[in-house]
Amino acid sequence: MIINLHVNGIKKSFDINPDEYLVEVLRRYGYLSVKKACDTGSCGVCTVLVDDSPVLSCSYYAVRANNKHITTVEGISGEDRSLGEFLVDEGVDQCGYCSPGLILTVIAMKKELENPTKESIVEYLTGNLCRCTGYVGQLRAIMRYMGVSE
């Protein structure tokens, strides 16, 4: 079936099967920043934004995204782009495989949390697993990006 998605601000038609998850469709159409890692909705690596909300693209049926706005890391713009620089400045890019999902979640979090604290940031991001960095460096970078102090 054909669905319409606004991916990174551009409306496009996608030929999909209704039993396909969004990650499969996005990768098939060349949005390769979207990564798969766990297959069970457990790790946050495949996170994309659907109408600005972070969702696991591995667990979200593509058909449900019909006519919605999808943001992948290729499509982030403006001030949000600087988040990547904060991560790189702190050295927490490491293997980088979880970075796109983390970045998108942080962007959504920044909009959603009204008075972010260290605790609320950790809680919000706990679904983004990372095996390289041990998390604390990422937290330093993200707190700096969010303007949150210890």
């Binding site: 920043s33 990564k35 890391v73 290729e74 990547g84 620089e85 790189v88 890019d93 980088g96 796109p100």
Partner: peptide
């Protein structure tokens, strides 16, 4: 900073 860092965080198809 890592020489490949910005490539990784901007989601380039590198894997």
């Amino acid at each position: 900073s890592k020489v490949d860092g910005m490539g990784l965080v901007t989601g380039k198809p590198l894997y």
